[in-house]
Design a protein around this nucleic acid. Sequence first.
DNA 1: GATCTTGCAGCAACCGGTTGCAAAAAGTAT
DNA 2: ATACTTTTTGCAACCGGTTGCTGCAAGATC
Lengths: 323, 323
Amino acid sequence: MAVTIRDVARVSGVHVSTVSRAFSAPHLVNPETRVRVLAVADDLGYRPNRAARALTTGRTHNLGLIVADIANPFFPPLIKAAQAQARLRDYHVFVADTDEDPKVEEELIQTLTKQVDGVLLCSPRLTNRTIERLRQEVPFVLVNRRVKGMATVLMDVGRGARLAVEHLTGLGHRRLALVTGPSGSWTSKEMQEAAAAMSEVDVAFLGPNPPTEQGGRAAAAEVIASGATGVLAYNDLVAIGLIEGLAERGVHVPGDISVIGVDDIVAGRLGRPKLTTIAMPTATAGRIAVDMLLQSVDSEVATGVTMLETALIIRESTGEAHS
Amino acid sequence: MAVTIRDVARVSGVHVSTVSRAFSAPHLVNPETRVRVLAVADDLGYRPNRAARALTTGRTHNLGLIVADIANPFFPPLIKAAQAQARLRDYHVFVADTDEDPKVEEELIQTLTKQVDGVLLCSPRLTNRTIERLRQEVPFVLVNRRVKGMATVLMDVGRGARLAVEHLTGLGHRRLALVTGPSGSWTSKEMQEAAAAMSEVDVAFLGPNPPTEQGGRAAAAEVIASGATGVLAYNDLVAIGLIEGLAERGVHVPGDISVIGVDDIVAGRLGRPKLTTIAMPTATAGRIAVDMLLQSVDSEVATGVTMLETALIIRESTGEAHS
DNA sequence: GATCTTGCAGCAACCGGTTGCAAAAAGTAT
DNA sequence: ATACTTTTTGCAACCGGTTGCTGCAAGATC
């Protein structure tokens, strides 16, 4: 049915091994033979079967990309960049969504390991222990999660949080709140630690919350109760939900409370008010993560930490504190 | 290194074929033997190698999902749903992005066909001819594109466009414009035809345009020049860009011009003004498309057209015509 | 008791490539 | 012309499963 290496061999009058080598070890075959074989292959429309190749080489030329929620606008640019970068290197990528569920995440990794050469774990919710166990089975690169000894791409959200807090205090805010994310989130913890380390300000930690608009809206009452006038939200979706929730309760942003988000998603730029936010270099992260992964697939060593810069983008959701 | 079917066979004292059958044809093996084998397999941490299985069965248990632009908010919900549905059926999905380029799209399909049992083509930009040629190599399901005889999931954007036009004329608008999308887009053509069929109104067709915010912003001047007071944009991103572009030129929405988008992306709900739009059931489309695809993989027949309903959601970007 | 089913397990070929080894061919040195 | 390299090609085993066929034993039928 499909044309195989044997068809090509027969038509071009050489042994299958020669055809194989014409593709995967060109220097081992006479240039003339090679062009002839390739011509025949092209003629017949031959395309190597990757599954068969994987069987002997142990390389599938596939990668796995696991994210918590594809529909969360933080991820698509990362997915897009990762997938494009992989394609440059002749790799395909499986994309899987865990629905923020660590159980699903682990299962997914398990079933994927046999089919991929490496896995990109983005913002995983698994415990460090589980990650360390799973790493035995397949090379990993983590994005936005730090586990010692593992290859990692981080975005400096700690610095972002500090900039955000400074921005708020600079506007005169004295009581701050941090609307945190899911409990397994490294980003969330990082933000907390950064904020907590700034001893001169008083910041309340409210959470954990689901990293969604609903999560933000639901946190509105708590924020009001905390008495904070400056808020840093886990991400833009939460910030947007929070602003809506506050509005429903008659609290105005930035008039009464200033809100800062994280991620710089498109919706934030268009919202009312336009969101002040910490921009995350997600596309860059995706690209670099793929490169690190492929490198560690080849070299067997999977280490190194890359830290990417974040930036505070000041728009309209933050303003001077009153009184 | 990894544990194979032979390891399991050796330890449990049976032949490899028995182990194989214990997994893939349970009724052909004695229940007692089966539980013993499965126990050993579990013990050893055996996981079948899908590539090896694919080699003999011809089924990879993988699907390909090709979209024009992962970062376009229209797609992520579809990708998420498709991926989840596939997982239910024990399939994994490759996600690939064509960057709106038909060449890339074709290449992608070519390299993917050998590794997947079927391909989901979302809003393809290829010609019908090319699609019909490629279909020989792998089963397809098309989303938002009609090619005769092929399995398809459509969203009734034609009806959506009619509702939109009626909404605009109902508000008193007499001169309308349609800001069309990319030239290969079925959706765009569908909208055009629906609008053109409504003979009682005067509608100008402006395009093609890239389906992005930039595309919309760039179309602003043309829209103004057309004299239209009611505009239907190819999608929400275009609509948002258009509104920005109009604002830059001192034209107010909905005060001076009414604008309707398509897709109902999150950003539209948050924008200023909130976007009147035609909602597309993308998640449902993803789910159904996967089911159709798997069905056609099994049955060898890949036909049937599913048409999903759209809905006009009226928000703040449309209003009464003046004068 | 002989014959016929039926259920279960083993054998071995096969899927489509890759690769170590050996043979053949071509090129070089003596 | 002979011996020695080096290049090029063929052979065959192998990767990890699947599956048609055969063989065996136990139960059913007469």
